[in-house]
């Protein structure tokens, strides 16, 4: 039986507690983010949208969510 355990990651510089089976896609869903307006950096690597559901987060991972709004 796989029991869920909490792990510590950093999201946009803030300490955060997530489950050990959470993927990047789960985090995006949790925060109710619009996928078409964000770019994800996972441990300083840009992750393309099609891979968000394939990457399971690990303890001490660093996630940066860059949210773009129009205007320039």
């Amino acid at each position: 039986m796989n029991e869920k355990i909490h792990i510590n990651i950093t999201i946009n510089g803030q300490a955060s507690n997530v489950f050990n089976d959470n993927t990047i896609a789960d985090i995006i869903n949790t925060y109710n983010l619009q996928p078409d307006s964000i770019v994800i950096e996972h441990n300083q690597q840009i992750i393309q949208k099609e891979n968000w559901s394939k990457i399971v987060l690990a303890n001490n991972d660093k996630l940066e969510i860059v949210r773009f709004v129009g205007g320039g």
Partner: peptide
């Protein structure tokens, strides 16, 4: 990155 539209802003970083 000094674009107006979100999709182009994203494209630069991606």
């Amino acid at each position: 990155e000094a674009f107006d539209k979100v999709e182009y802003k994203k494209m630069i970083l991606e």
